[in-house]
Amino acid sequence: MSSTQIEIQLIAAVVAVACALPGVFLVLRRMALMSDAISHTVLLGIVLSFFAVQSLHSPWLILGAAAMGVFTVALVELLNHTGLVKQDAAIGLVFPALFSIAVILISRFARGVHLDVDAVLLGELAFAPFDRMTLLGFDLPKALVVMSVILGLNVLFITLFYKELKLATFDAGLAATLGFSPLLLHYALMSLVSITAVGAFDAVGSILVVALMVTPAAAAYLLTDDLRRMLGLSALIAVVSAVGGYWLARGLNANIAGSMATVTGGVFVLVLLFAPERGLVALVRRRTRQALEFAQAMLTIHLLQHEDRPEAHEENRMDHLVEEIRWQPRFAERVVRHAERTGKLLRRHDRLVLTEDGRQYARQAMIH
């Protein structure tokens, strides 16, 4: 493996973690669409800052982009607070308008400048290692240095304000009562999202920024209820998706950012299907088990009510149960087998007889 390939994967991993960490709070706050809005509208901040300083390498571009991200959030919330439109509609109104203004400005006044809309959307990680800078005597990819600094800022912010972020995310009212400022934390978080988005533009493009901010966090949310674990799992899923996406792109000779987004989506689908508690497979199994438990309770209650009565010989026959309780024969057989396995009844020829455990179970079911 060449040094360029290693650097590409390293840049991708750093970008992935930098995006995934603030993405956790966006997902928990039900603001996933806001990452899409910010990752597009910061382009307008970059364009306006470029017009002001006439340099693509000025730090004012990042500051301008961050300011535009905060402006986007403020504008969305202003529309939302009018009560005339909901938040998702407000986002749909604001970010296409601001992004389209940026596109018009680029196409009209910056044609000779390297502010390419396609590069902003898709990025090209393959070229990131060739844009280099010297830091402390080391020759490093510029994207790696920039995103490492942004990752450090994100980690520092989350570490310093972890309790405040947690409280403001889950109960903003209580946070305000305790003297915290949920609004200030909110805009600080949105500023970090904006800075992260603009920092990742050159390397991965806005599409992958959205994917890395939302998808790993959403997958981690399905795996745990603990915020610390969610942050760790989100970062891990993001790194796995980034590295896996690189090798997928290499195998298919495809765009790296697009491949990473695809792998990220694939990981989410796997988690959605097979998450231990919240996955679809676990959900189907749980509902099937609950249906069997409920049917078993109905069966034992039915047998108990007719036990030691003249009609018991007729009522506890298998074919009569199908007709009486209106179960399908296959389902009735499953319920009876389940009750046999759990020791609730015995099958004697064509009759079903409750065990003592089955009688106790039926009595408890009738009480509850």
Rank of each mutant, 00 (worst) to 15 (best):
M1G: 11
S2T: 09
S2W: 07
T4P: 04
T4R: 12
Q5P: 05
Q9I: 14
L10V: 08
V15A: 09
V17I: 13
A20K: 06
L21I: 10
L26P: 06
V27C: 06
V27W: 10
R30I: 11
R30L: 11
R30Y: 07
L33H: 12
M34F: 06
S35F: 00
I38G: 03
H40V: 07
F50Q: 06
A52Q: 05
V53R: 01
Q54I: 09
L56V: 02
L56S: 09
H57P: 13
T72E: 07
T72V: 09
A74P: 10
A74N: 11
E77W: 12
L79A: 11
N80H: 15
N80A: 15
T82E: 09
G83F: 02
G83P: 01
L84E: 13
Q87W: 00
A89N: 09
I91C: 08
I91P: 10
L93S: 10
V94G: 06
V94P: 01
L98E: 01
S100P: 00
A102Q: 06
A102H: 03
I104L: 09
L105R: 05
R108C: 09
R111M: 14
G112M: 13
V120Y: 12
L122N: 08
F127I: 14
R132F: 09
L151M: 03
L156N: 05
I158P: 00
T159W: 05
F161L: 12
E164Q: 15
L165S: 00
L174C: 11
L174H: 12
L178Y: 11
L178T: 08
G179S: 11
G179A: 11
F180Y: 12
S181C: 14
L184Y: 10
L185E: 09
H186K: 13
Y187C: 14
L189W: 13
M190W: 07
S191N: 14
S191D: 14
V198E: 00
G199V: 07
A200W: 04
V204Y: 00
V204G: 02
G205T: 04
I207Y: 10
L208P: 07
V209R: 06
V209T: 06
L212K: 02
L212N: 07
M213A: 06
M213D: 03
A219Y: 11
A219T: 08
A220G: 07
L223I: 03
T224A: 12
R229F: 01
M230D: 05
S234N: 07
A235Q: 11
V240Q: 02
V240N: 00
G244F: 03
G245E: 10
L248C: 02
A249T: 02
G251W: 09
A257E: 10
A257K: 10
G258A: 02
T262N: 04
T262K: 06
G265Q: 06
L273C: 09
R278D: 02
L280M: 12
A282E: 00
A282I: 06
L283Q: 12
T288P: 03
Q290S: 15
A291Q: 14
A291F: 13
L292T: 08
E293M: 15
A295Q: 14
L299Q: 01
I301A: 10
L303V: 12
H306R: 08
E307V: 13
R309N: 09
E314F: 15
M318I: 14
L321Y: 03
P329L: 04
P329D: 07
F331K: 00
E333R: 13
R334P: 07
H338R: 07
A339I: 04
D350M: 01
R351I: 10
V353M: 09
L354H: 05
D357C: 04
Y361R: 04
A365Q: 02
H368F: 08
